[in-house]
């Protein structure tokens, strides 16, 4: 089940590529009929692959925290505003003097969904649940996957905890929400 969407997509794209190669051999042109309407389509001969490199220099501590099994928010030392996702600058008092505060204890699930139709770059995962939970300590909302992906076992208001996990198969550290107590044990 988990690999099916990705496999199906790759298989389909391979078939299309093969078909275009055949058509080019016989006609000299990458023109293919639209599958639904028969309209003539030029099959692009150029491909663009994009992977971004994103600066996290000023919030490096957040990622060091994940390595310690902790999820951090930032708090402005002057006005006390707490930011999650963590910000290096406080727009409220226009200063950049922040401290790192751990998001601790139990949170309350505010809302959730389960993603069945996935983006291309997530097609290799099993169906995943995503939730937003409020953590009173230190007073932030966190959006993350929920370890339980059956919507019948999830409910608004249920207690959750933050947990640092290693995401597979990419093998990198991230965080997820884990139901605690009666509301959806595994």
């Amino acid at each position: 089940m988990s690999q099916s969407q990705k496999k199906a997509m790759e298989e389909y794209m391979k078939q299309v590529e093969q078909f275009v190669e055949e058509v080019k051999k016989s006609t000299g042109l990458p023109l293919v009929p639209d599958q639904k309407t028969g309209a003539a389509l030029w099959y692009d001969q150029r491909e663009l692959r994009i992977k971004y490199t994103i600066s996290v220099e000023r919030i490096r501590r957040f990622f060091e925290g994940l390595a310690e099994g902790k999820v951090y928010a930032t708090r402005c030392k002057h006005c006390g505003t707490v930011y999650f996702p963590p910000q290096a600058d406080c727009p409220r008092c226009r200063r950049s003097d922040m401290e790192w505060v751990e998001i601790k204890g139990e949170g309350e699930l505010l809302t959730y969904t389960v993603i069945y139709t996935k983006p291309a770059s997530f097609a290799h995962y099993p169906d995943y649940a995503v939730g937003i939970a409020h953590f009173p300590d230190p007073g932030v909302n966190v959006l993350a996957w929920i370890s339980e992906n059956d919507p019948k076992k999830l409910r608004v208001g249920m207690k959750v905890r933050l947990k640092v996990v290693r995401r597979q198969p990419e093998n990198y550290l991230t965080y997820e929400l884990e139901p605690v107590g009666d509301g959806g044990e595994s």
């Binding site: 969904t113 993603i115 139709t117 995943y128 995503v130 996957w145 991230t174």
Partner: peptide, 9 residues
């Protein structure tokens, strides 16, 4: 990046 939200999601 980490959670693969879609617009329906």
């Amino acid at each position: 990046e980490n959670f693969g939200l879609t617009f329906p999601g």
